[in-house]
Structure formats: structure tokens, C-alpha cells
């Protein structure tokens, strides 16, 4: 079976620093793939390469059987790669609902094409339930800039989901969330349709083990290990990497 996403030999350099030194990563349909590693390992950089926000100096990214290396982030989003950023990125003067509407617009199909405002209405229909799911129904009409940090992160998750992703890239979705919010997040990710593949960058290993079926470990821009959560948990190599990275 050809994977949904196949990134090969990805290399990103910042001056003399190799943020990614030839990394391979493939994700299959419906997979829950976690990407872990110490600070500065290159996790966010790899997400940026997959989403099209960073051009690698070398390497290919194939998504849905097509080389998307030349496409920008917008074109990739329209093909089904949606993401949340490590630092929540939302439209601060727009209300929570408007944020989700904007995110939903590129991929909604209006019921009647020729009716003015049809797309917007269709997007509005998607926004309500998503905000509800993320526990944001009460603040639906509050400008996103006035939301608390954790709420903004949840809003961005709602936005990523509004884009009907085939591949959802989550960069530390639990950072800054309260215990209740983390619980809701785990529930939500578990309930995602199997048609959606997830690439999860997360430092909280309890969440990784709860959600992922495959784990890739990065360190210093290289893939250190990959396997099932059990294999990774017991790998001496990985323990060593983390011990070094934190020390």
C-alpha cells in the first residue's frame, strides 16, 4: 500500500546548523503517528516541510501519490494537509466562530452554488459543532485575541479540523492546556474518523502512548528510532537520547 505521506531524505540547514539532516518519514491512511525528541531535534521543522511552510534544501515530499514539493502551504492545505502551530496562530480580531468559518471556507461545498453567501453559510454550519466539541461554544462570539492561551490552542485545533484534513499535523497540542482541556483533546483525537491520519508532535509521553500507534524519534535532525509505542518505550537508545537532550 502506498503511504498517504512519504517524505524522503529531507534536509533543512540554517547556516551551519542541520535542523534536518536527511530524514525519512511515511504516514499511512488513518495512522496515528507521534514524532518525539528533545528540544531542537527538528520536529517543528519537519512539520513545516510537510505543510509547505519551509522549503527543504534536499528531499521529496509525496502526498496522496503526488509530489507536492513545489506547492506552497495554501495548495497543500487544499489537498488536505492541515495543521496547528506550536504557538497558537489564530485571527485575533475575528470571533472564534469567524476563525473557524475562515478555516472551513476553502473546503466547503455550498448546497446551492449560485446562491450568494452559500459557502459562508455552509462554513458556518461546520463551525458550530466544532466549537462545541472543543468546549468553546460559550466564547463563540468573543474575538480570538481575548481568549486565554489554552482556548486559543483549542480554537486552532477546531480550525484545523474545519479544513477537512486527510493529514492533521499537531505541534504540541497539549502544551498550555489544563487537565480538563487535555482530557477533552485526547477524547477528540480518539474520536477522529479513521480516514484522518495524524502526525502528533508531543512532549508529554503519556499522551503519545495513549494516542499513537507509531512513534518516530528525532534527535539532532536525524531519525533515531521508529516503532510501536512499546518498542520505543523500552529502547535504550531512546532513553539515552532523552537523557542527553535534557541534561
Amino acid at each position: 500500500m502506498t503511504p498517504l505521506l512519504d517524505a524522503r531524505d529531507v534536509q533543512v540547514r540554517y547556516g551551519s546548523l542541520a535542523a534536518l539532516a536527511g530524514v525519512d518519514l511515511s504516514i499511512h491512511d488513518g495512522q496515528r503517528h507521534a514524532l518525539i525528541g528533545p528540544n531542537g531535534a527538528g520536529k517543528t521543522t519537519l512539520l513545516n516541510v510537510i505543510a509547505g511552510a519551509t522549503r527543504p534544501q534536499r528531499g521529496t515530499v509525496v502526498f496522496g501519490g503526488r509530489d507536492v514539493g513545489r506547492l506552497g502551504p495554501a495548495a497543500r492545505a487544499r489537498r488536505g494537509i492541515n495543521r496547528i502551530h506550536q504557538r497558537p496562530a489564530v485571527f485575533s480580531t475575528l470571533t472564534a466562530t469567524e476563525n473557524v468559518v475562515v478555516a472551513a471556507l476553502p473546503r466547503v461545498i455550498p448546497q446551492r452554488r449560485w446562491r450568494p453567501g452559500g459557502r459562508r453559510r455552509a462554513a458556518q454550519h461546520r463551525a458550530g459543532p466544532l466549537l462545541e466539541q472543543m468546549g468553546l461554544a460559550d466564547v463563540a462570539s468573543v474575538p480570538a485575541g481575548h481568549l486565554a492561551h489554552g482556548q486559543r490552542r483549542q480554537l486552532e485545533i477546531a480550525m484545523a479540523l474545519a479544513g477537512r484534513p486527510r493529514l492533521l499535523l499537531l505541534d504540541e497540542p497539549a502544551a498550555g492546556l489544563s487537565a480538563t482541556e487535555v482530557g477533552r483533546l485526547v477524547e477528540l483525537l480518539r474520536a477522529l474518523p479513521r480516514a484522518v491520519a495524524v502526525l502528533l508532535v508531543e512532549h508529554r509521553l503519556d499522551l503519545v502512548y495513549a494516542l499513537a500507534d507509531t512513534v518516530t524519534v528525532l534527535r539532532d535532525g536525524q531519525r533515531l528510532a521508529a516503532g510501536t509505542p512499546d518498542e520505543i518505550r523500552t529502547s535504550p537508545l531512546v532513553r539515552q537520547a532523552y537523557a542527553d537532550g535534557v541534561a
Binding site: A74, F91, T93, L94, M159
Partner: peptide, 24 residues
């Protein structure tokens, strides 16, 4: 209209607008 909404969104965060699939 939708165009007005997208213009305001772009003023707030163009990167986010692209990441959502809009042709900025």
C-alpha cells in the same frame, strides 16, 4: 461578505490564512 472576512483575517495573520488553504 466572505471577501471582507478574509481581508480582516489576512490582516491578523497571513500565515494562518495560507495554512488554511486560502490564496492570499
Amino acid at each position: 461578505t466572505r471577501a471582507g472576512l478574509l481581508l480582516r483575517a489576512g490582516r491578523d495573520d497571513e500565515t494562518r490564512l495560507r495554512a488554511s488553504g486560502h490564496r492570499v
